[in-house]
Design a binder for these strands. Structure first.
Lengths: 241, 241
DNA sequence: GGATCAGAGTTGTCTAGACACCTACCATCT
DNA sequence: AGATGGTAGGTGTCTAGACAACTCTGATCC
């Protein structure tokens, strides 16, 4: 295998192995064999395998080998594998309709989350995400003004706001804090999602942080689980003991 | 520093560093300095730092150094750091009251989740978890019969069912699948949690899997977020690029 | 036939160092 | 004063191996 320069080898190896996984619990070649196959040293192979184990796609068994985890199956659901990246990754068959996009004074609790002085203003985007089954998610997101100026409208309909921010600015989201709650649909949300009032909805309040611990974005999301179930797969981080 | 034999050095180093963190965004000693301090090679130090970065406690900045993430703060909330271990870790000021504990025929959907033939029976535990603010969680958990026999009653009031299983059998939970929903409290749940009927509650349906992909436990949990907020901190896995 | 032991293969841990690239700082040149 | 460039120190990537611990298999011994 010849490696593409500029991209670390262990990432290319991880991609290659991930691509070849069938997800049936079968054994993959030993680390020694992978060294020979890719022409790299064992630490490099292990670094690639670490990624896949961390993603929950592989598990190791000392003395026996490395195996692919039987896939827990399923599609058409919000997936989280313990990572921000996957949390953002909605199915590809969903799309976003912008409702509003303006600079507004921020409510006190949001100002606190973004660590803005009370009474300041921020960029607010709101809209509805649709699936074939109908509208299923209402989002209101707040971003600091200086970050929001680069964003174009078409970006927002394709990816998430966080995704657009990461592409167009040099901000990188490193972790997020999420409070999950169950609420009855507020009237304006019920209307936009075409639901009866007082339908129970999932409510997410997420604050996205950059690597330096600075809040980047705060989003309030209502989700109708009838139309789009919310599912999470959490893998235990490996503590090779 | 003298290392305790039997425990990998990188884990002991990670524990030592984690213990010394103040969580104020300050710089920690460089990898080279840590090598000298602990008397190990740099890959070993990096392996320790990887753990802490993975946990979201540290972040690296190439060319500048390694820093502790300012803590997102907070207590008294369910915490998840993208790991099963932390998901189980409720606050220490909560306790569990057993309601029932018996072998019953399992409903069809649970049998499917545990991959049992329809009509089979399993061990069912149900109860209520309390905080100072009152009862806040109703749990019904199903475990295969052969796994459940070792469990004693007192274990269940101290740790979670999964914790007891891991201590008393050789089962290890590697990942879990969780479906989150918002529902109106069923009557018997509302009674046990001392809530008005039709209060919106979080509903978790979790299936715990062992490393080989075999389902170990299935739990249905109702949670009153008024009494015990549900918060998650998700860190992005490091893709050093 | 059954238990015990040796060995091969696998992952787990760790060493000592090399070079690349990025960042911040400072001295120098214009 | 401002721009340029060098330098030191930081993390990022990678090599080539060593030994330990675990698991399974098969041969040997009783």
């Amino acid at each position: 295998m010849d490696f593409q320069p500029g991209i670390p080898r262990y990432i290319q190896i991880a991609d290659a192995i991930r691509h070849g996984l069938k997800g049936e619990g079968e054994r993959i070649p030993s680390e020694h064999e992978l060294c020979a196959q890719f022409g790299v040293s064992r630490p490099t192979v292990r670094q690639a395998l670490d990624i896949l184990v961390q993603e929950g796609r592989l598990y190791r068994h000392a003395g026996r080998g490395t195996f692919s985890t039987p896939s827990p199956g399923g599609d058409r659901r919000l997936r989280v594998i313990g990572s921000v990246a996957d949390m953002i990754a909605l199915g590809e068959e969903t799309w976003f309709k912008l409702v509003s996009r303006e600079v507004v004074p921020v409510p006190a609790n949001i100002a606190q989350a973004l660590r803005l002085p009370p009474g300041s203003s921020a960029f607010r985007v709101s809209g509805v995400r649709h699936a074939e089954t109908g509208p299923f998610m209402h989002v209101t997101a707040y971003v600091k003004r200086e970050l929001a100026e680069a964003l174009s409208e078409e970006d927002l309909s394709k990816t998430s706001l966080v995704g657009a921010l990461e592409r167009q600015t040099d901000v990188t989201v490193k972790f997020l804090e999420q409070v999950v709650d169950a609420v009855l649909a507020p009237r304006h949300v019920a209307e936009l999602l075409q639901l009866r009032p007082r339908t129970p909805l999932l409510l997410f309040e997420r604050t996205y942080f950059s690597a330096s611990g600075e809040p980047v974005e705060h989003a309030v999301t209502y989700q109708a689980t009838r139309r789009y179930p919310y599912r999470v797969v959490l893998s235990r981080p490996e503590r090779r003991t």
